[in-house]
């Protein structure tokens, strides 16, 4: 027991938490931006998968991890835009459109990988690159904090920065104000001359780009390969975390961290106490369901209270 305690409160543990949290947080932020504009983006899972593959392919093609990332982001933005087109222009149900995109992404990535490399399932013959780890000047010399924060993958810093950027976008810019207005009361937004669809297109595109960051992290962060279905539901977790965090960037950060801790804790507990690995794997999902139920219940009560006032 003592040893578990020591591991949990070790800097390495928290280093690990940040690593595990990164893709989830990207997905959660992506869900936040989309749902704030009134579109439920269940396609996140598929977007991440596509971006993961695109990043691998282009980083190998250009021999540049950065260009790989760039193309991954572009692909994510485009798929986001495509979802917008389906929902806003063709009036497709957002959930079914998202499921369709996910199904296409799951098969399409394998298909594309095979065409390009002849690999089946894992991009073993593509010489893709990894995005660099980054030592934080000054901070790296601080004990404990340095160990936790420094030498993380560059995208881990990007995601932390994204929390701030999305917070500013939503709460400090005219665009964010419009996104929130459109998502909450499109009639009100329209009555003051806001182009509702335009704002929603922008929001799903941003959402797609954020999800793409998460996908790129998976295939270019620590690994340098794409594998079939490697997102493993992280897009869905993002949706759940967004619902639980009340669709705010700060909430997204906290819930994703909770998820990251639950996930990392699993690995630790396993080494410390004899709890089966498979049970430990359930922890983050159980945490999410319980958290979501508690959050929804308190929100329901809150609405009832507001109404009875």
């Amino acid at each position: 027991m003592q040893s578990v305690f020591n591991i949990i409160f070790s800097p390495d543990f928290f280093y690990d938490v940040l690593r595990v949290t990164t893709p989830i947080l990207f997905a959660t932020l992506a869900a936040t931006v989309a749902s704030r504009s009134g579109i439920f983006n269940i396609a996140l899972e598929g977007i991440m998968l596509i971006a993961a593959l695109v990043g691998v392919i282009f980083s190998a093609y250009f021999s540049s991890a950065w260009l790989g990332l760039l193309f991954a982001l572009i692909s994510g933005g485009l798929v986001g835009l495509f979802l917008g087109f389906l929902v806003l222009k063709l009036k497709t149900d957002a959930i079914l459109a998202g499921i369709a995109i996910n199904l296409m992404a799951a098969g399409g990535t394998i298909f594309l990988l095979y065409i390009i490399s002849g690999d089946r399932g894992v991009s073993s013959s593509i010489k893709s690159l990894v995005l660099p780890k980054f030592p934080l000047p000054v901070i790296k010399n601080i004990p404990i904090i340095g160990t936790i924060l420094s030498m993380q993958n560059i995208l881990t810093y990007v995601v932390l920065l994204s929390v701030i950027v999305i917070h500013i976008l939503l709460y400090k810019t005219p665009l964010g104000l419009k996104i929130r207005a459109v998502g909450e009361n499109p009639n009100a937004a329209e009555s003051v001359g806001i182009n509702v669809h335009k704002i929603q297109y922008i929001a799903v595109t941003i959402s797609g780009i954020l999800a793409a960051f998460g996908g790129a992290f998976l295939s270019m962060g620590y690994l340098s390969m794409f594998s079939n279905g490697m997102t493993a539901g992280r897009g869905f977790i993002g949706l759940a975390a967004d619902a639980m965090g009340g669709s705010t960037p700060i909430g997204a950060l906290l819930v994703s961290l909770l998820f990251g801790i639950a996930d990392s804790m699993g690995n630790v507990i396993q080494t410390g106490i004899k709890i089966p690995y498979e049970i430990v794997q359930m922890l983050p999902y159980i945490t999410t369901i319980v958290g979501l139920a508690i959050f929804s219940y308190s929100k329901k009560k809150q609405i009832e209270k507001l109404k009875s006032k």
């Binding site: 063709l90 296409m104 799951a106 098969g107 399409g108 298909f111 095979y114």
Partner: peptide, 17 residues
């Protein structure tokens, strides 16, 4: 996996109002 493209397009077209 070409089939996944076929399936996706079918869903979208059927659901698209």
């Amino acid at each position: 996996e070409i089939v996944s493209i076929t399936q996706g397009v079918i869903i979208i077209l059927i659901v698209a109002e």
